[in-house]
């Protein structure tokens, strides 16, 4: 289970890239730092877009990151099947880049929410969730002020009818997301975006609420190694 290389992107204002790289390494893959200003994906097998406040969240969360030089390479590669996981700000960037439909808006409560959050895995067929059971309940940290998933009625109906909702909030919706949506995927299940943070839930030592985040990384590793 070695040899898989997972790129971890750093924009100005990214916060979670070190945890993301560590989670990739713990799963047995090689994390490869990718820099926003480079036109170079360094031949990675998959990409992790971590959370934070890229470009200070100026204009809209992810709106400026979407035009970073690296994204000129990442967007076509992702459309051609490169697996991409975006968490929190990474999810916002995927939506702004139109790699995933819909958008993330201000939490309905207007409060920044930071807590351990129950989540149900409702699609374990994506590249990033195959090591979960279908319907498995997990706990991951959430920490965001703009995580309310919205989409047009048509888009929402399509996501629901085609099984592209991947995660739903359990035990209280932290942000007012439509249909309690915590994460979604693209048509082929290669691109996944979610507001919760799997990279913060891989080690008991740091007081994480669970190690449920590990399965994201073992999922992609198995897919890459078996590909």
């Amino acid at each position: 289970m070695s040899g898989a290389r997972v790129g971890v992107v750093t924009f100005p204002g990214t916060l979670d890239d070190q945890d993301a790289a560590r989670a990739v390494r713990l799963a047995g893959a090689e994390p490869v730092p990718l820099w926003h200003a480079d036109h170079d994906l360094k031949g990675v097998d998959a990409v992790f877009l971590p959370g934070g406040f890229s470009y200070g969240d100026y204009l809209r969360c992810g709106a400026i990151s979407r035009f970073a030089p690296l994204m000129d390479e990442l967007i076509p590669a992702a459309r051609s099947g490169l697996p991409v996981l975006g968490t929190c700000n990474g999810f916002q960037i995927l939506c702004e880049a139109h790699l995933l439909p819909g958008a993330l808006t201000r939490n309905a409560s207007l409060h920044y929410v930071c807590r351990d959050q129950g989540i149900r895995v409702v699609n374990n067929r994506t590249a990033w969730t195959r090591d979960f059971e279908q319907g498995q309940d997990i706990v991951l940290p959430v920490k965001h002020g703009e995580g309310r998933y919205v989409a047009s009625d048509e888009t929402l109906a399509e996501l629901e009818s085609t099984g592209r909702v991947v995660f739903r909030y359990l035990g209280g919706n932290p942000n007012g997301s439509l249909n309690d949506i915590a994460g979604i995927t693209n048509e082929t299940g290669t691109i996944v975006g979610l507001m919760p943070h799997p990279e913060h839930a891989v080690e008991e030592l740091v007081g994480a609420p669970s190690t449920d985040g590990r399965a994201f990384f073992t999922s992609i590793l198995k897919k890459l190694v078996n590909a």
Binding site: T105, R106, A108, L110, G176
Partner: peptide, 13 residues
């Protein structure tokens, strides 16, 4: 402006 059907919690506040 946010589309009319999109919740605007800041405006509400």
């Amino acid at each position: 402006m946010l589309k009319p059907e999109i919740l605007d919690p800041q405006g509400q506040a």
